[in-house]
Amino acid sequence: MTSESPGNPLYRQAAAQLAARGLSLDGAQRQALTRLADWLQARLQPSAWRRRAPAGAYLWGGVGRGKSLLLDSLFAAAPLTAKRRVHVHQLLQELQQRLLAHSGQADPLARVASELAGQARLLCFDEFHVHDIGDAILLGRLLQQLLKAGTILLFSSNYAPSQLCPNPLYYSRFRPFAELLERHCLVVEMAAGVDYRPLSERHWGHYLQAPQAGLETLLAERLQLVMPAAPLALGPRQIQPLGQGREALWLSFAELCQRPLASADYLELCRRFARLAVSGLPELARCSADAQQRLVNFVDIAYDAGRELLLHGEQPLESLCAGVNHMDFGRTRSRLAQLRRLTAVDHREYQAC
């Protein structure tokens, strides 16, 4: 594919959108956008004399490097009406629901893939990651069907395809999925560089460092909460909020992350509430791997949904996040760095921050 993408209308439109937001691309970002724009242009307007472009593109690299921004700008520039961007948690939940609707029919996964392909010629999967072998096999079969249907696939991820499933016990079963991505996608690595999230002016919530005493009064007035709150149904499960308002919910960390909640539960919370408070954040390195994974999933989903997060702990956030070795926590740490830091305990002072 050509390297003259500044003349590519998709590149120009995507770069103009980013510039309109006051964002300028560094060298690695320009190079990645160049390759992706050339690829998509070749997919949308194939040429008889040019080699056929791969069916998909897979952009990967370190946290906070602007991969989602590039994907979103290219997605917006694509001259298609039948296009869709989806986060992996949402995709897996939707896939299960669609499969259930086709239960008892022949090859339900092929039917689901046909539905998705009929609704979107371009499918973008942002922050793509999959560590569960069952999910990997299911997604691999789905992607095979989408590729057969001619769907254009665009991914962003923190991991190369071969690194998506780090558990060595499952890697032999996972390898066909990684090879499927490598075979059918243009794989573009975003060169290492600055994590831009902590430098961003986008603040999607607050981290309040304060004693537990007095927190109820602060949050009740800040979020317009009713306390005590009634139990909240999430499908077959119930959780016990500390407070609930028309658009806000307050949960303890223990209730949110130390109970067996699933990504589907976090998706439901983010559908129902625009503002979510989580109090009593402990030293995360001391938490179980399951609790760490739930926090990672919750932050991913809340961030992608544009929900306002108010996180509370009695120590500095950096201290509570120190020493966590969970492989996905780099992305979570980067996103939590965008929370405004508050240390006030007086309500008037807190309101003024």
Results as ranks from 00 to 15, higher is better:
Leu138Trp: 10
Ile137Trp: 04
Gly140Gln: 05
Ile133His: 05
Lys148Met: 12
Gln93Cys: 05
Leu100Ser: 15
Leu36Gly: 00
Gln29Cys: 12
Gly61Ala: 06
Asp72Leu: 05
Gly104Val: 14
Pro108Asp: 07
Tyr11Asn: 00
Pro54Ile: 15
Phe75Pro: 07
Leu10Cys: 10
Ala15Trp: 00
Gly7His: 13
Leu44Arg: 09
Gly134Asp: 01
Gln96Leu: 08
Ala82Asp: 12
Leu100Asn: 14
His102Ile: 04
Ser3Met: 06
Gly118His: 13
Asn8Cys: 10
Gln93Ile: 02
Asp135Trp: 05
Leu40Phe: 03
Ala32Leu: 10
Gln144Lys: 11
Glu127Lys: 00
Ser24Ala: 13
Gly27Arg: 15
Ala136Gln: 04
Arg141Tyr: 03
Leu143Thr: 03
Arg52Tyr: 09
Ser5Lys: 11
Ala106Arg: 03
Gly7Ala: 11
Leu23Thr: 09
Leu44Ile: 14
Leu95Trp: 09
Arg111Gln: 15
Gln96Trp: 05
Pro108Trp: 11
Leu80Cys: 06
Leu36Ile: 07
Leu146Ala: 09
Leu80Thr: 12
Thr34Ile: 00
Leu92Asn: 02
Gly134Tyr: 13
Val88Ile: 11
Arg12Tyr: 01
Phe75Lys: 00
Pro54Gly: 12
Ala19Tyr: 06
Gly22Phe: 00
Leu40Asp: 02
Ala120Phe: 08
Leu25Tyr: 09
Leu116Ala: 14
Pro46Ser: 04
Gln17Glu: 13
Gly134Pro: 08
Leu116Arg: 15
Arg35Gln: 14
Tyr11Thr: 05
Leu143Ala: 01
Cys124Phe: 04
Gly7Met: 07
Glu94Met: 10
Gln119Arg: 13
Ile133Asp: 10
Gln31Leu: 09
Gln17Trp: 03
Ala32Arg: 08
Arg111Ser: 08
Ala16Tyr: 10
Ala42His: 10
Arg12Trp: 03
